[in-house]
Design a protein around this nucleic acid. Structure first.
Lengths: 229, 229
DNA sequence: AATAGGTGTTAAATACTGTTAAACAAAAAA
DNA sequence: TTTTTTGTTTAACAGTATTTAACACCTATT
C-alpha cells in the first residue's frame, strides 16, 4: 500500500536510460526520463519528484552542475549519481554538491534499488501514519489508546481485540478476508488460530451490542464484515 | 557549533582499527574502538552513539549479525560496513540487514569521512542528534546522567532501569520486542531475566505515573510500548 | 433430508503479565 | 574486615490474555 516513488532519471545514453526506466517502473515506481541536465532541471522544477538519479557525464549540462542547481531550490530531495569513472575526485565532488550516494557503471540494477531504499528509508522515515481513530456508529475507537468509547461507556481492549477491530474498521461495510486477518493478527492462518479469531469476533460483538446500527456479520467461507447503517 | 559525532568503530584488525580511530578523532569526532561484534553490541547498548562503522568479517560475532541485533533495538542509528571482499551478495546483505552504506577495503579515509557526512546529513535532517536525552511527556530523561526529571521531581535511575527506559524511548509509540530488550539489557532472554524485566517495568511505571499522558503498555506476547499521547 | 465443513458461544486450560516482598549480591562506608 | 547501603534476582500470588475444547447451530451441497 506504499505510494509509488516518483523518480526523475537523467541519463544521456538512450539504451541504458530506457532499460533503467523500464526496470524501475517494473519494480513499482514512476519514472520520468530526460537526456541532459538542462531538460532534467526544467522537468524537476515543473513536477514533483521523490528521487533523482543523475548521470554525471552528459551533454549541455552535466550531473554535478544540475545537482548544484537543484540544491539551490531543494535541499532535501535524494540524489544518486551514476558515473562511468570511479575516480576518487569525482566521488568526492558528488558528495560535495549534495549527493546522497554514488554508483559506478556498470552496476547491478538490484543494487541500485537496494541503495535507493536505504536512502528513502531515511528520507521518509517519518511518513504520516493513519491517525488511528475510527467512528463506528455511536462508538469512537482509538487504536493507539486501545479504547472503545460510547458516551460514558469505555471498554479497554486487549492487543488482539484491538488489532482485529482495526482491520474490521479498515474494511467497514466491506469484507475482511479471513485468512488475511489471521495472517495479519496471528501471523499464521491455521485452524486453531481461526477458532481463536472466532472467539474474538464474539467478544467484539458483545462490546458493539450497545449500538443496534453496528453489527459484525459473517460472510460464509470468506470472512467478516463490520456493517454500519 | 556542531557537537562531536560519537562513533562506535568495530574492527578486529588492531592496526587498521587504531589508525582509523585516531584519524576520526583528529577530524573532530569521538571514537570508541571494539574488536568483535559481541563486545561491540554490549558497548552500543551501554552508551549513546551517533554512528556505527562495522567490519564485516570479525571473530565471535560478525558485522552483519551485530547489525541485525542493533536494528532490533534501534532502527535509526546509521551503520556503515567495511569489508575486504566486494562481492555483490555481501553488498546486498549489508543493505538488507539495515546498513546505510558499504565500503570495500582498501579505501581512502577521506572518502569515508565524506560518506559519513552524506549519511549524517540525511539522518539528522529530520531528527536531532542523539545526545542521550529524551522527552517523555512532561518528563525529561537523561540517559548519561541516569536521571528522570519532571519539574521539581528528580528520580535517579539504576543501571537496568536506565538501559530499559532508553530502549523504550528509542521505540516510543512503537513496540519494543521482549527478547530484543532482554538480549540488549540482560544479555540473555531466558525466563528468569524475563521476570526480572517485568519487575523493572513495574518500577518504571511507578516513576512515570506523575504524567497521565505517559504509559507503558504491554503488547501481549510481543513486548512493551512506551505510549505518549 | 443427509452430510460435511464452517460459525457462534461459553467455559476450561494454559500462558503471560503485574506487583510486592523477601532473598541474594555487590558496592560503599565504617 | 565487618556493617550498611544499594541494586538485582527470585519467589509467591493475583490477575489478565489467549488458546483450546466442547457442543450447538448454521450453510451449502448432494
Amino acid at each position: 500500500m506504499n505510494k509509488k516513488t516518483k523518480i526523475l532519471l537523467v541519463e544521456d545514453d538512450p539504451n541504458l536510460g530506457t532499460l533503467l526506466s523500464e526496470y524501475l517502473v517494473a519494480k513499482g515506481n514512476e519514472c520520468t526520463l530526460r537526456t541532459n541536465g538542462q531538460e532534467g532541471f526544467e522537468t524537476f522544477v515543473k513536477g514533483t519528484f521523490d528521487f533523482l538519479i543523475l548521470d554525471v557525464m552528459m551533454p549541455i549540462k552535466d550531473g554535478f552542475t544540475m545537482a548544484k542547481e537543484i540544491r539551490g531550490i531543494d535541499k532535501d530531495v535524494p540524489i544518486l549519481f551514476l558515473t562511468a569513472k570511479s575516480l576518487k575526485e569525482d566521488t568526492l565532488q558528488g558528495f560535495n554538491v549534495g549527493g546522497d550516494d554514488y554508483m559506478t557503471k556498470p552496476f547491478s540494477m538490484e543494487e541500485l534499488l537496494v541503495r535507493m531504499s536505504a536512502i528513502l528509508r531515511r528520507t521518509q522515515g517519518s511518513e504520516e501514519q493513519d491517525q488511528g481513530t475510527y467512528n463506528i456508529g455511536a462508538f469512537q475507537f482509538d487504536f493507539n489508546q486501545r479504547l472503545l468509547i460510547n458516551g460514558g461507556y469505555e471498554q479497554k481492549l486487549t492487543t488482539k481485540e484491538n488489532a482485529l477491530l482495526k482491520l474490521l474498521c479498515k474494511n467497514v461495510n466491506g469484507v475482511l478476508d479471513r485468512n488475511h486477518a489471521l495472517n495479519a493478527v496471528w501471523g499464521d492462518d491455521n485452524y486453531f488460530n481461526g477458532r481463536s479469531m472466532d472467539v474474538y469476533i464474539a467478544k467484539l460483538r458483545k462490546y458493539l451490542k450497545l449500538d443496534n446500527n453496528v453489527e459484525i456479520v459473517n460472510v460464509h467461507g470468506k470472512g467478516f464484515k463490520l456493517f454500519v447503517k
